[in-house]
Structures are given as structure tokens and as C-alpha cells.
Design a protein around this nucleic acid. Structure first.
Length: 570
RNA sequence: CGGGGCGUAGCGCAGCCUGGUUAGCGCGCCUGGUUCGGGACCAGGAGGUCGGUGGUUCAAAUCCACUCGCCCCGACCA
């Protein structure tokens, strides 16, 4: 493609709201154009990348025997009513009515549609297993679209669905997908981590997510570098960090400072973890104590989940019920029920309020000194927490969710009547799995992982073009002839963008760096005088000078070695 | 849904607080010329319902009310 004929509207500036690298560069490189909140057009350069990603997906899905089809995006309410998701999906579903006033929805996902096909067509165990997939635009009225294509209201999803006779079959389909996904993401040049995840609205049992590390990611995961445990923080169950203090007798100490954890720890010259935070809550009008280690905070959501009707006691209530200000109280000698977070279990030598203003106890051994009704997991997880499998400190990462695979089981087949007859003549529900990939998220993640201050550095496999030929002097006949020849020669084997525009060199260099084509061939008067052409590798910024007749050879060599480096990397 | 911010030329922004001629600047665009290896320079030019509606006023981009849209943070969701 000659750039002079191409539509690649690059920009020097973008709105200051565009924060993340992928958001900024997608706009600046002329790859996407916003139409409305969370709704984007993919311009030619962006679409080329997305097509390449889709083709990698197709190749790997086909490899596991999946069959591509295409379902409608516009769907009748009736199928959603069958599974109850017409209600469940709430405001996130785009809804409309047709001219006969029938309720319709733009599909946010396709379990219902595919199950409607399944129940009519698959009647025998002989027809199973099956895997069907599509690459299609999904519609979700997100509360808050963000990061350009990272969370959009219309987006391209590869969704596949597996149908099996039983759980064992599902297990195989699930594993096949997991393998295909790993290959897809690594083929796109991305390193992913597979984590345990929440299945939420999809239903079904365990699900796994494929995550790529990025500061712009909306999810957080924890990962154990020792045993390989990895989980979305939403379903993780890390252990509190370990502490040990010297035990001893209970001692009341005058503490003439404010009762905050920070101040008290400073006063005793100990770490916050040696304190026991004692907080009075009102549960169904009854006061109860919640205790937690001083370096942790209580996760109010977890608390709500356990006790339902619970709120923190006001300052006045604490004074009235305990007889001291909030910073100087504890369950020591108190008649109210005490619940403790696991972070307190088994430790001694703690400090907490003495239930008298400006006094604290030290040397508290909760199991000796307090009647604890129950231990609960109510702490807010934090960095430093330990692996639940091997007690190694966990790594915390921000990530982008690229793929999510679910074992649906029989939720949809039972609700919508998708049954088959088994060998024994018995009617059984088809066991389903559902598997999604966010296509644009792969593109955005690649930019997040591979860019510098100048622009994008595309992984070879999804780069919109392989090589950009930059002719710096479109007015010099010698340079033009050479550029045209090279373009024709290389275009047979490579995808070439030929920058033949009559612009200043700086402009063209910056554009080339911005759009991130892996190899740059630079033809200019300076080189021509010396009989050489320059090749620059985008990313490493490595440059080499090659005589024109050796260019093809050198490009072939470079391309092969760059492919190899990519393979070795992941 | 809560909090914050923004809407002025294709893009990025100033002007608004303290109302007052033809509403500015940079980039981009068009014409001519000089330049030509990291986003040039000179000269000329085109391009604006100041998001919308209503109000206050002799006078509104500027003040007030309502409204629409967009962005960021959080909550929510996956």
C-alpha cells in the first residue's frame, strides 16, 4: 500500500483525557475513531490488526475442531425470558422494541441463541461432542466504558460453545479451549497468566481467565511464583502475613496520644501488626466486637455478606456502651460477642485498648484473654499476603482480561430444553461450556506491553504491515526508482506500507515510529550518495546499512531472526 | 449510581472569574515561494449556530436555570 493512497490519519496530539498508552496510541496512530461513549470505528490500520488477530483465533479454533458460524446480534426477548436473564441482565442489556412492539435485545452474549439452535438440532449422543464459535460484535451498555477499547459498549468477541454428553466430555472441551487460548495469545505475542475466576452472570461452576499484565488493567490478580497458584483477587483466598511477638502478662499502660493505630504503634515503638484493632459494630441492634490485626483493614463488603444487618457503632455509641473513646477500647472484659479475623489467630503479645481513655493493654493473648465466638475471613487482602497453597508471599499484578472460559454445565440446556438421547435410551441434558475472547483487548494489550515514548512496537504476528519503506525524497528520481523497485520486490512476500508522501523527513520518521511497523527501510539522499539503504528495527532502534542489491537477502534474514526471537521469548 | 472535570474552526487549547466593536492562539487544510535525514520557514487564504433551550441585561462565549453529550476517579459488572 502506498501511504499517499492510504487513510491513516495520524495525529500529534490527542485529548488529555486519553491516559493509557493503548488509548493514546490507538487514537494517535489513526487506528480507531470514537463515535460515542464506548463506541468506536476501527479505521483501516486498526482493522488490519484486528483482522490478523481474528485470523489467528480462527486458525487455533479450527485446530481444536471448532466450527465457525454467525448468529444474529438482534434477538427476541423470549429466549432471554426462558433462562431468566431478561431480568438478570438489567440495564447492561441494550433493549428495543420492533414495529409490532415486541421486546428485543442486542445480544451481550449468545448462550441463549446457541442453545435455541442446539435443542432443535442435536438429539442424539451420536451428534456429540460439538464446538461452535463465532467472531461477532457484542453489545453491552456498560456503566462506565473506559480506556477506549478496553471496556467498550460495542466490541468484537470470539465466543465459542461446547456441547458434551457429560462432565468428563466437558472437561476435555474445556482443556482443549485452554490450550487453544494459550496458543492464540502467544501467537499474538502476548504472555498471559491463567487465573481462577468468578463466573458471575454466566453461571456454572469454576471458570478461568486469561490475563495479561498491564497497569491500565481493571482487574487485579495474585500469583505465587513458587507453586504457580494464580487467582483473580475476587476469588482469591490468600493467608494473612505471618507475625510473631513475645507473649507475656497483661499490662495496662498510660498512652497519652491519639488512639489511632499509627500513633499507638509509634508510642510503643512497634509495628502496626502488633496492635489489635477492636471495632464495635451494631448487628441487629446488638453491639458486637470485631477484632483484626492492626496492619489490616476490615472489608465492609465481606462483613455485610456474613452478618447482613450490620453497621459500625458511632463514637457516641462506643462511649456509651464501652465507657471509653473509640481509640481506647477492646473486648477485654466485655460482655458483647467477639468475632475475630483470622489474622489474629494464634498470636500473642498484642496491644489494644484498655477501655479507659488514654490507656492500653499490652501483652494480650486473644485466645487466653478474650472469649472469641468465631474466626472469620473479613480482612481486606493486601500485598504481603501469603499463598494459600504454600505460604509464599504472593505477587500482585494489574491485568487486562483477554479471555474467560466457563464450565456452564446444564444451566442453559435444562432451562431451554436441550436434551439428547444417550445409548441407554435415556434423555439427558447436554453439558455445555462457554468461552470468550475480547478481540480488541488483544490489540490494546499488545500496545500496553510493547510501546515506547514514540509509539507502538507491534509484535510481528499482528503488525498491520511487516515493513515500511520510507522514501525521504520523493522528488529525487533515483530514490523513487529504487523505492518503487524495492516495493515491488518485497511486496511479493511481505506486507509493505510504502511511504511515498512528499513530506519532511522528521514527519515521516515520527509517523513510522508511531504506527509501529516492525521493520523500516529508509531511502534517502544521504544513503544514496554512499550507495546504501538503511534498515531500522522498530523497538530496538537497531540500524544497519545495506547496499540495494543485498536488501532482500538482509530483510529475509532479519525477518527470520525476529520471528525466532519472538518464539524464544514466549 | 456517587464524586470531579470538560463542551469555543478538522484536532489541541486560551478567552468566561470581573458581560461591551470584526472571538483568539498552535497544529492541520488551500495557494505561491524558499527549504528538505527526526513533526521547517515566509507571504497570502478558507474555515466558528462559542453543545442546545430558555432567562437576566441596552448588550451574553462570558451571569442564571434547565437540558444534551463527552472524559476521568470510585462503586457495580464480567
Amino acid at each position: 500500500m502506498k501511504w499517499s493512497n492510504a487513510f491513516i490519519p495520524t495525529r500529534k496530539e490527542v485529548p488529555r483525557e486519553a491516559q493509557s498508552p493503548s488509548h493514546r496510541f490507538l487514537l494517535r496512530a489513526g487506528m480507531i475513531k470514537p463515535l460515542s461513549s464506548g463506541i468506536y470505528t476501527y479505521l483501516p490500520l486498526g482493522w488490519k490488526v484486528l483482522m490478523k488477530i481474528q485470523n489467528i483465533i480462527r486458525r487455533e479454533m479450527d485446530r481444536i475442531g471448532a466450527q465457525e458460524l454467525l448468529m444474529p446480534a438482534l434477538t427476541p426477548a423470549s429466549i432471554w425470558e426462558e433462562t431468566g436473564r431478561w431480568e438478570e441482565y438489567g440495564d447492561e442489556m441494550f433493549r428495543l422494541t420492533d414495529r409490532r412492539n415486541s421486546d428485543m435485545a442486542l445480544a451481550p452474549t449468545h448462550e441463549e441463541v446457541i442453545t435455541a439452535i442446539l435443542r432443535d438440532e442435536i438429539k442424539s449422543y451420536r451428534d456429540l461432542p460439538q464446538v461452535w464459535y463465532q467472531i461477532q460484535v457484542k453489545y453491552r451498555d456498560e456503566k462506565r466504558p473506559r480506556g477506549a477499547v478496553l471496556r467498550a459498549r460495542t466490541f468484537i468477541m470470539k465466543d465459542s460453545y461446547s456441547f458434551d454428553r457429560d462432565r468428563e466430555g466437558l472437561e476435555i472441551s474445556f482443556l482443549k479451549h485452554a490450550e487453544a487460548y494459550t496458543r492464540i495469545f502467544s501467537s499474538c505475542g502476548l504472555k498471559t497468566t491463567v487465573v481462577e475466576a468468578l463466573s458471575g452472570l454466566m453461571g456454572g461452576s469454576k471458570s478461568k481467565e486469561f490475563m495479561v499484565a498491564s497497569d491500565s488493567g481493571e482487574d487485579r490478580i495474585v500469583e505465587c511464583l513458587h507453586c504457580g497458584y494464580a487467582s483473580n483477587i475476587e476469588v482469591a483466598d490468600p493467608l494473612p502475613s505471618k507475625v510473631a511477638f513475645k507473649g507475656g502478662d497483661l499490662k495496662k499502660v498510660h498512652t497519652p496520644v491519639s488512639g489511632s493505630v499509627k500513633e499507638i504503634a509509634k508510642f510503643f515503638n512497634v509495628k502496626p501488626s502488633q496492635l489489635m484493632k477492636s471495632i464495635l459494630y451494631i448487628r441487629e441492634k446488638e453491639p458486637i466486637w470485631i477484632v483484626i490485626r492492626g496492619d489490616y483493614d476490615i472489608d465492609e463488603e465481606k462483613l455485610q455478606g456474613i452478618f447482613t444487618d450490620i453497621r459500625i457503632a458511632s463514637e457516641e455509641e462506643v462511649c456509651e456502651l464501652v465507657g471509653a473513646q473509640a481509640g481506647y477500647v477492646s473486648p477485654m472484659g466485655s460482655k458483647y460477642l467477639v468475632y475475630s479475623d483470622f489474622s489474629i489467630r494464634g498470636i500473642v503479645g498484642l496491644i489494644s485498648g484498655a477501655n479507659e481513655d488514654y490507656y492500653h493493654f499490652m501483652g494480650i493473648a486473644p485466645e487466653r484473654d478474650i472469649k472469641i465466638k468465631d474466626y472469620l475471613d473479613i480482612r481486606e487482602y493486601r500485598e504481603g499476603d501469603l499463598c494459600p497453597q504454600c505460604s509464599t508471599p504472593l505477587e500482585w499484578k494489574n491485568v487486562i482480561e483477554l479471555g474467560h472460559i466457563y464450565k456452564l454445565g446444564t444451566k442453559y440446556s435444562k432451562a431451554m430444553g436441550a436434551f439428547y438421547l444417550d445409548e441407554d435410551g435415556k434423555e439427558k441434558p447436554i453439558v455445555m461450556g462457554s468461552y470468550g475472547i475480547g478481540v480488541e483487548r488483544i490489540m490494546a494489550s499488545a500496545i500496553e506491553q510493547f510501546h515506547d515514548e514514540k509509539g507502538i512496537i507491534w509484535p510481528l504476528q499482528i503488525a498491520p504491515y511487516h515493513i515500511i519503506i520510507i522514501n525521504l525524497n520523493p522528488t529525487n528520481p533515483e530514490g523513487v526508482a529504487l523505492s518503487e523497485d524495492l516495493y515491488k520486490l518485497l511486496n511479493r512476500e511481505y506486507e509493505i506500507l510504502y511511504d511515498d508522501r512528499d513530506l519532511r523527513s522528521g514527519y515521516k520518521f515520527n509517523d513510522a515510529d508511531l504506527i509501529g511497523i516492525p521493520l523500516q527501510i529508509i531511502i534517502g539522499n544521504r544513503g544514496l550518495k554512499r550507495g546504501i539503504i538503511e534498515i531500522k528495527i522498530r523497538g530496538t532502534e537497531e540500524r544497519m546499512e545495506v547496499p540495494p542489491e543485498k536488501i532482500k537477502e538482509e530483510i529475509d534474514r532479519l525477518w527470520k531472526s525476529m520471528q525466532k526471537i519472538r518464539l524464544e521469548k514466549y
